[in-house]
Amino acid sequence: MKGVVAAALPLSAFKILSPAQVKASVGDSNVRWVFLVDIQKCVGCGFCVKACKIENEVPYDVGVTRTWVERYVVTKDHKTHIDTPMGGRDGYTSSKIHGEEIDPDTITKAFFVPKLCNHCKKPACVQVCPVGATYQTKDGVVLVDRSWCIGCGYCIMACPFGARFFHPIYKVAEKCTFCYHRITKGMKTACVEACPFGARQIGDLKDENDPVAKTIMTKRVGILKDEYGTQPQVYYIGLDERVR
């Protein structure tokens, strides 16, 4: 009798789940927001940074920004000159980098790299939050709960991409939201909308008819800092190994 009870008990602890229930229990949903940047198309106008700052009420004249554009100029002596004045907010209008004029004849290649939060699949910033103020939504966007954040700054240090900063007004951690208020209404993010050249695109990786998902799955794309294992979801076309 005792043996029967002992054998039956563990069995009753198991539950048979349908595939849909399993999918739900691992935090799956039908949408996975991803971003695609075409480095070749970017001309460094900085309209994306300007639009982002205004759309998301990021203090305009303070040196913090949710998205930014970096300039890389590689010269024949294998040096890489990198700058991002005010995050590229006012566009790149001068060939001087950190006040230094670079001889055009020595340039082997030059390009602009738009950057933003990678909305990683395994976000290090979320893992380190001691109060549960930053989290990943079911559609893959990493957000900060402004009313719950205590401003300890662990997440700012944990992000390998430097995508987070301290909001000077709200005194909480601040980051790109993929314009969650826009994408959930069927609009595009402010930076995608503002880009005249189609260098930035947002899409849904789980929608197989989505042009962005198609590109990511069928073309050669790269991600930043793969070695950190956070599985970034901002993909780049034409990525150079000098980009960090």
Partner: peptide, 15 residues
């Protein structure tokens, strides 16, 4: 206007 139309000597980019 300069954001796009200021000349930069970057032959490899769309600029």
């Amino acid at each position: 206007c300069r954001r796009c139309h200021a000349f930069l000597p970057y032959p490899q980019s769309n600029r």
